[in-house]
Amino acid sequence: MFSNSQIDIDSLPKFQDVQLQPISSKYIYILFFNLIFTYGIVLITLISIKYIFNQNFLGNYFWFAIAGILLLIGIQAIFMYLNFKTRKYGLREKDIIYSAGFITNKTTTLPFNRVQHIEISRSFLSRKLGLSTLKIYSAGESGGDISIAGLPKSVAENKYAFLIDILNERV
């Protein structure tokens, strides 16, 4: 006989009770480097066009454009810093939780039985700072993939080994 009893929602474990761990504070250097590098290319290109190819490039608005880009860098740096402070992760017996976002906070909880693939990646700057990115891919197209950037290399490797052990127990 089919049974579909109602669940007492108050008795379910709450993800808010999990003590989430922040990512490494060194990761902010990578974020700021990427910001400066990207806008640096734009600024160098504008200045090169003005002084190498055409003295009247954008006319009187050239310095307003430069000031606007510098203001945009400042605003984006502030939001980047505030967003960085919200990046946290946590492990429980049966799932992993990742939370990020200053204006719009997104919390993803991925049950281990949905984990399909795990990898660790390290960019050039990440290697220099001893950081890694742990990527956890879920089964299906639910958008539940988690990418935790800014973990110390040893922490990422420990989490990777822990998750691999759990995946191997399923097989």
Rank of each mutant, 00 (worst) to 15 (best):
N105C: 15
K106Y: 12
K106I: 12
K106V: 11
K106F: 13
T107W: 15
T107V: 13
T109R: 09
L110C: 13
L110V: 10
P111C: 13
P111S: 10
F112H: 09
N113E: 10
R114C: 08
V115C: 09
V115T: 07
V115K: 04
H117Y: 11
H117D: 10
H117I: 03
E119R: 09
E119P: 03
I120C: 01
S121K: 08
S121P: 04
S121T: 07
R122M: 01
R122T: 01
S123E: 06
F124P: 02
F124C: 03
S126I: 00
S126W: 01
R127L: 01
R127S: 04
L129T: 01
G130W: 05
G130F: 07
G130N: 09
L131H: 00
L131C: 03
K135A: 08
I136Q: 05
I136P: 06
I136G: 03
Y137N: 02
S138Y: 04
A139R: 07
A139C: 04
A139K: 06
G140S: 07
G140F: 04
G140C: 07
S142R: 11
S142I: 06
G143L: 09
G143Q: 11
G143Y: 09
G144S: 14
G144F: 13
G144D: 11
G144M: 13
D145P: 08
D145K: 12
I146M: 15
A149Y: 10
